[in-house]
Write a protein that binds this DNA or RNA. Structure first.
Length: 923
RNA sequence: GCGCCUAUAGCUCAGUUGGUUAGAGCGCUACCUUGACAUGGUAGAGGUCCCCUGUUCGAGUCAGGGUAGGCGCACCA
């Protein structure tokens, strides 16, 4: 093996082997375990958020596969209507073309071409992460069978009256020229103005002043409203004003909605361009005058002067025209929330159009119940509140989009405007007995992307066909996803799956945090702080990184700043840390759905961990490859250390499994790291040297230690594998022939996960080794603080040793000598007087290193005083507690006993140390 | 307005049903190229657990009230 771990050399080949051998498929045996991949957009590239979530999904998948579950990770990609259409349109724009130049059919063809060419990108990147979904079942949301499911669902919901078509005010994106759902609108506070405008009374009896943030909409006003309780305006109600610029006469109405305290207390009402005004218009039967075109220009319903003007130009003109008429009272700066489309960033218009809706209320009820009853569980739990809050106030879902890329709505219209819903035109004609001469035209619109995503849990399993997968993998085990799509996706999957299969879609919902940069800032192209997981795996040099971060900037002037920051932070580029290190980092940082501040130094630390594992393996192989490891017979004599490491392995295994069951990947990772580094490497490997390099060891003893070395490591690889698939596979292949593992698994990834073995637990060995550790650490501490060179071998005297201590000494003396670098160990009997020594205390035994020629009197006094001070504090605190009547009277017996024992121990140690201090002072 | 989350070492974070001396990684200091590993070893320094009040024998942990920061939903003429 190479001296240092080089992930690049092993990862790709390893993955190809797994895939070639078909190891990602469900075994067909065992309890089903299923994870649904949230289908990434085909337009997407793997970002840190994916890498994080995929690591967790893959660790769970690999763990359960090894545990013997019939495990499926269902993967696929989403057609991402708007996003994908925008990508291809942008390509066309580069050639000065629009999608209209191509026409619908050609355009859609072109999107398919693009999908074939670039759509697989993210799947390839997932392979680099070592993910193990069943690629043979990979689906695309516009595949034939998924499209069939979409159609089926649409038709059924329509027939039940749960899908309807209606003319209403929707969120209209005047740039993308489509309706969008409430969820796709983001409102940010922006600086704007409040214009106060004077509307004269129609009868010339005065005027009324209204306040608005959108003066241009006055062209569509059909009323002015005041609060019925507002005394200032009561005499106006029922009268009319003459709307400036248009000459229309519109009524003054009274409505509770109006807040008398806000603005002037008078509201202009534009039912066709404001959601609240729309409701009021309905209540008062007001006419709805639409004054905008699809692309938000003033239309023919407005006076000729304004027709054709863009909405923002119209605003300026309305304001200046009112001003010149003396009707503009004042302009106040005003902060307001501006609704923008999440894709286009265009200001969204409330706009009156015909759209398709899902009536969700009846679907929401069972979906709420599924979480309330505990059938579906959010992890962490508090997300259920977010879920309920939205679900309890859920609005009908606008599902039609005026796009070309997506699932076409299966509805046809005749010339009379009748609607027919069915599988295709022929089906529609048949169902409705339409004569051949009736002309039918299919609805031009497509469905919201999330409509098909909502069917993911069952459509991917073959629904509406009755398939074995539907029986086996619905419901799935856990959904791993971000809180940002709880409404978009999670809630809708629950509603649809409940509705169409009667089942819940998943039992657990594990909500992950966001991956941010090391300062806690959101990673974004415009901030230039984006990290590509592939760059962390493969490494990237500085120039390439700078180029990547500054290319295609929306605001080119940001590029200079980004260049500077990047050069400073990554002056040597990014090292190739490898997939396992990256995955381990994500696991270690994944605590209870907090956001992750991704820090490169963590990856570096876990890369070092990989290297540690690698080198430990080198050591183990060096000591086992050419030797008898006892796997083909021969007596094994296990040392107390061999027994100890097996015992500790069981603890680690149990801790790992418990943590995984609770989705505490950080605790799981911590357990793996601690055992591997701090127990196996730091102590066990060092101790094995004492057996292997000693002439005193018998063949049985050496065989026992070699057997332990190879098999603990082999078990450890299987334990680590779910988190670190590559390095463990590489190493396991080398270890397996030397180990006792005689399974015929094709790879560690389909081998058995280690089983907890009670018989390997050994408390006696654990206590013995704790004693050894305290012994060794005590001496190391003296050595460290006294600046005694590591090369200097020390003679050690033991005073006040009990028979148990002497027993343990006999069992472990060789280890102590090696680990603490001792020259000799002698036990003093009670009559012997110890020479002046530096002292450490283990239990009641004193470990003494004679000072002569080695240790400085003052230094040792200082060291002893420090430790005496600590003990004195302990004694004081504990005494205080125990002398408190309330404590002794009320605390549980066990706690009091603990305190008493602690006090006794501290007093004993303190007195020994004080004795030593006196002895040394006397020198 | 309604709701959620966070505050612990220089940094990033753990800390279970309240109960030993509050932990880890990174960083820092000193020493060490010893035969697996300098991507390493050994030892060490470093804490007003955001603040106040309360409950309790006992509070990082529970309750109430603040402060600071983050997020979601609704409203916004």
């Amino acid at each position: 093996m190479e001296k240092t771990f080089d992930p690049n050399k092993i990862e790709q080949a390893c993955y190809q082997q797994w895939e070639k051998q078909g190891l990602f498929k469900p075994s067909g045996i065992g309890e089903p375990y299923c994870i649904l991949l949230p289908p990434p957009n085909v337009t997407g590239n793997l970002h840190m958020g994916h890498a994080f979530q995929h690591t967790i999904m893959d660790a769970l998948t690999r763990y359960h596969r090894m545990k013997g579950n019939n495990t499926l990770w269902q993967c696929g990609t989403d057609h991402a209507g708007i996003a994908t259409q925008m990508v291809v349109e942008r390509q066309l724009n580069a050639d000065d073309l629009t999608r209209h130049d191509l026409g619908r059919e050609k355009f859609v063809e072109r999107v398919w071409d693009w999908k074939k060419e670039s759509g697989g990108n993210i799947s390839q990147q997932m392979r680099r992460l070592g993910t193990s979904p069943d690629w043979s079942r990979e689906v695309f949301t516009m595949d034939e069978n998924l499209s069939k499911a979409v159609q089926e669902v649409f038709i059924q919901l329509y027939n039940e009256g749960l899908i309807y078509r209606g003319k209403r005010l929707v969120n209209w994106d005047p740039v993308l020229l489509t309706a969008v759902s409430d969820l796709e609108v983001e409102s940010e506070e922006e600086d704007g103005f409040m214009w106060h405008m004077r509307y004269p009374m129609a009868d010339g009896s005065g005027d009324i002043v209204v306040a608005t943030t959108r003066p241009e909409t006055m062209l569509g006003d059909t009323a002015v409203a005041v609060n019925p309780e507002d005394e200032r305006y009561q005499s106006y109600v029922g009268k009319f004003i003459k709307l400036p610029l248009t000459g229309r006469e519109i009524p003054i109405i009274a409505d509770d909605y109006v807040d008398a305290e806000f603005g002037t207390g008078c509201v202009k009402i534009t039912p066709a361009h404001d959601f609240n005004d729309y409701d009021m218009g309905k209540r008062h039967n007001l006419p709805m005058i639409n004054i905008l075109t699809d692309d938000a220009k003033i239309n023919d319903n407005a006076p000729a002067d304004y027709q054709g003007l863009d909405r923002f130009d119209a605003r300026k003109k309305v304001v200046s025209d009112l001003e010149s008429l003396g009707l503009l009272v004042e302009i106040k700066p005003h902060k307001l929330k501006v609704p923008r489309g999440d894709r286009s960033q265009a200001v969204i218009e409330p706009y009156l159009t015909d759209q398709w809706y899902v009536a969700v209320e009846s679907l929401a009820k069972p979906a709420i119940e599924a979480v309330k009853s505990g059938e579906i569980r959010f992890i962490p739990e508090n997300w259920d509140k977010t879920y309920y809050q939205w679900m309890n106030n859920i609005q009908d879902w606008c599902i039609s989009r005026q796009l070309w890329w997506g699932h076409r709505i299966p509805a046809w219209f005749d010339d009379a405007g009748n609607i027919y819903v069915g599988k295709d035109e022929q089906d529609v004609r048949q169902q409705n007995s339409l004569a051949d001469d009736v002309v039918l035209k299919q609805d031009e619109d497509v469905l919201d992307t999330w409509f098909s995503s909502a069917l993911w849990p069952f459509a991917t399993m073959g629904w509406p066909e009755e398939t074995p997968e539907l029986d086996t993998f619905v419901p799935s085990s856990v959904l791993v996803t971000g809180f940002d799509i709880i409404f978009f996706w999670v809630a809708r999957m629950i509603m649809m799956t409940k509705k169409f299969t009667g089942q819940i879609p998943f039992k657990d919902i594990y909500i992950t945090g966001l991956v941010r940069d090391e300062n806690g800032d959101k990673m974004s192209k415009s901030k230039g702080n984006v990290l590509d997981p592939i760059d962390v795996i493969d490494g990237i040099d500085l120039e390439a990184l700078v180029a990547k971060r500054t290319s295609g900037m929306m605001k080119p002037k940001d590029a200079a700043k980004i260049t500077k920051v990047t050069r400073k932070q990554f002056s040597d580029g990014i090292d190739a840390y490898g997939t396992d290190a990256l995955r381990f980092t994500f696991a270690a940082m994944a605590s209870t759905s907090r956001d992750i501040n991704f820090d490169m130094s963590r990856v570096e630390g876990y890369r070092n961990f990989c290297n540690k594992i690698w080198n430990a393996t080198r050591f183990v192989l060096m000591n086992t490859e050419e030797f008898d490891t006892g796997n083909k017979g021969g007596n094994l004599s296990l040392s107390v250390f061999d027994e100890w490491i097996w015992s500790r392995f069981q603890d680690t295994l149990a801790e790992f499994e418990k943590a995984i069951a609770q989705y505490r990947f950080d605790i799981a990772a911590q357990a793996l790291y601690e055992f591997t580094w701090n127990q196996f490497c730091d102590w066990y490997l060092e101790l094995s040297k004492a057996v292997l390099n000693s002439d005193k060891s018998s063949d049985d003893e050496k065989r026992g230690t070699r057997h332990t070395l190879i098999n603990v490591l082999e078990h450890l690889m299987r334990l680590l594998h779910p988190v670190m698939p590559f390095i463990t596979d590489e190493i396991a292949q080398k270890l397996k022939p030397l180990s006792a593992n005689d399974s015929n698994a094709a790879s560690i990834m389909v081998d058995a996960f280690p089983l907890y073995q009670v018989s390997r637990k050994n408390e006696q060995a654990e206590n013995d080794i704790e004693w050894v550790k305290s012994f060794v650490v005590g001496i190391r501490n003296i050595r460290g603080e006294m600046d005694i060179p590591p090369s200097k071998k020390l003679p050690v005297l033991l005073a006040n040793a009990s028979s148990k201590d002497i027993d343990r000494l006999a069992k472990t003396q060789d280890y102590l000598v090696l680990l603490a670098k001792l020259e000799s160990v002698s036990v003093l009997d009670n009559s012997e007087k110890a020479p002046a020594s530096a002292t450490a205390i283990v239990g009641e035994m004193e470990i003494m290193i004679p000072m002569a020629g080695l240790i400085d009197k003052d230094a040792e006094l200082k060291r002893l005083n420090k430790s005496a001070e600590k003990l004195e504090n302990d004694v004081k605190r504990t005494e205080g507690k125990l002398s408190n009547e309330n404590f002794v009277g009320k605390a549980p017996e066990a706690v009091i006993n603990k305190e008493r024992a602690k006090l006794e121990d501290a007093q004993m140690q303190l007195s020994k140390i004080q004795e030593q201090i006196e002895t040394i002072k006397a020198l």
